[in-house]
Design a protein around this nucleic acid. Structure first.
Lengths: 337, 337
DNA sequence: ATGAAAGCGCTAACAC
DNA sequence: GTGTTAGCGCTTTCAT
């Protein structure tokens, strides 16, 4: 292994000079710098990460904690993870991947060992058990998601409440009076995942204000579950003409079943989805949707974190404004027969 | 920060004793061990990762390089990544996430800096540009996927050639004589991704031996692309009764379009998919499929890697045997009208 | 069964 | 603008 000392010897300078050439923390004459850089190249030198971390107490690593459940909103998670990783690299950081499995212990371990300097948590629950630890430590962290209590925390998320409101508004503007919401699996609500509950809040609130009927049904996704859910909805509210779906694995089944029942989209019923852009575009009917801006969330989270690590940046809740894109799945409510 | 020295003082022992209690590398009297463990707990001690890495030249980190493209076989990738991470933890390793973006440089950086002790590469191309580096370094690595030349490499993958053969055999046994293959996007083949080409090889080989007609069409996925592809297939081979799909985002469109054209599955046409279990189960028709064993691949890769790190383990290509599960999408070929 | 001490490779004062 | 040097916290001989 090539060490800094060897580079120094090879370039005929002291160790500190090499170190400073690398860090740029003090001015070096052009000549020396070039000599050192040449030696570095020639010897194929790479600074030892551990030694660096030890001497500087900075590991240049941030931890990313992803949910263990691989059955839900997977594409979003993956997209965020990748956005986090590439953005982190542009700031000189590497990303350590942690699964939710270890729970709060992972936070302790990573925090305590100096392995990571900071962390990003995904899939935050309203009353997340990791939050006390985050508040207790002085390690910077950013949540992707919004817990119930955000004091002393930095959060980035889509404004799901506004998202819900936006969906209702769109349907209302088209004349729909009875709206059904097909939500995430019951388990998601039971875990009090923030985004699901907040969307619901926005949906309810806005439909109440606009005097619309709103029926919310969690749904596990897949054809069988959805068939059941859909039957119940039309049973209970036969006049339903508008749907809001927030569940990737329910989107296609919904469209297929509606078609199968002879309800045309968007002539007879309108569908608005909350999902990644890709899902909306690839569905059998191009979906009017509010996109979950996964990349932007990941990027934003890293930038907040880096700001904090640099002493800038504050505890702040950033809610990205939802944007509804009208496509082929929503239209005016049909005239009463 | 609590250091090992402080623990030693608190427990009234030497630093080395504490270290050995932690590593178990030499026998410690029960009394001392308990005293030390108690001190560790009381002081909330966590060994400093960097110091450890420096002193032992072992970082306890393995790198996982995932493809940058977030548009393809995402659930599989995510499942593998999570399996890798959790399995690694059971062996005391953490996982550093790298995206393909940096390319071969990432290998150099991580290898050279001692940041990671070993690496796992996903999405390996037949002639991957990272391979020369892997062969040159003495860092252990495992590929998930199979390049053209596996000399000196350790690889884990589903046996896609056998997978292709298995699909054809299943359809042949049901009496199908004309089979169409709906493959991954053209780009996947252009990149010479191993799994796609090897599946094709298996499909072609077996159908030739069995005297079946086989038509292969790459497809970008989504409804529009698939509609086009499907039209061409029936145009060229009107007698097609069997389909093999290897493209998650083509599965549902295929089923929908067939239905729409009045071709019943499995009465008129049979469909066999190569996809994650979940996709097969959640489709509108429960799909006869060969599952891509993502979890097993991830787990296996880590175990191979850990074996190599421990001096055991050899360069070996492990091809997991495909298993075809018969569900509701395949049946006997219809009688000629 | 335990201790003492020499590094591991780097950073960051402190000198000049 | 550059060199000298004292650690950073841990592992691991070498002693006893």
């Amino acid at each position: 292994m090539v060490t800094l000392a060897e580079v120094a010897r090879h370039a005929g300078v002291s160790a500190s000079t090499v170190s400073y050439v690398l860090s740029g923390k003090r001015s070096i004459s052009l000549a020396t710098r070039q000599r050192v850089e040449e030696s570095i190249r020639r010897l194929g030198y790479h600074p030892h990460a551990g030694a660096r971390a030890l001497a500087s107490s900075r590991s240049n690593i941030i931890a990313l904690m992803v949910p263990l459940r691989t059955d839900m909103y997977v594409p979003v998670m993956m997209e965020i993870a990748i956005a986090v990783t590439t953005t982190a690299r542009t700031h000189g950081y590497d990303v350590l991947l942690l699964t939710g499995e270890e729970g709060p212990d992972a936070v302790r371990r990573v925090t305590g060992s100096g392995l990571a300097e900071a962390m990003i948590l995904m899939d935050v629950e309203l009353d997340d058990e990791r939050l006390p630890l985050l508040r207790a430590t002085d390690q910077p962290s950013v949540l992707i998601g919004l817990p119930a209590e955000t004091d002393g925390l930095t959060c980035v998320d889509l404004d799901f409440e506004a998202t819900g409101a936006l969906c209702v508004e769109h349907l209302a503007a088209l004349g729909h009076r009875d709206i059904a919401v097909i939500g995430e699996a019951p388990a998601v609500y039971e875990r009090h995942t923030g985004f699901a509950e907040r969307t619901l809040l926005g949906l309810r609130d806005r439909s109440r204000r606009l005097g619309l009927g709103l029926l919310h049904r969690p749904c596990a996704g897949g054809y069988d579950a959805l068939a059941l859910t859909l039957a119940r909805i039309f049973d209970e509210r036969p006049g339903t003409t508008g749907f809001v779906v927030q569940n990737e694995s329910a989107v296609e089944p919904l469209l297929a079943l509606l078609r199968q029942q002879g309800r045309a989209v968007p002539e007879d019923v309108s569908v608005v989805a909350v999902c990644p852009e890709q899902v909306a575009l690839h569905a059998s009917v191009r979906l009017t949707s509010v996109a979950v801006p996964a990349q932007e969330m990941g990027r934003h989270a890293v930038e907040q974190l880096v700001a904090k690590l640099g002493g800038r940046g504050s505890d702040e809740v950033v809610l990205l404004a939802p944007e509804l894109t009208v496509r082929a799945s929503s239209g005016p409510v049909p005239a009463r027969p």
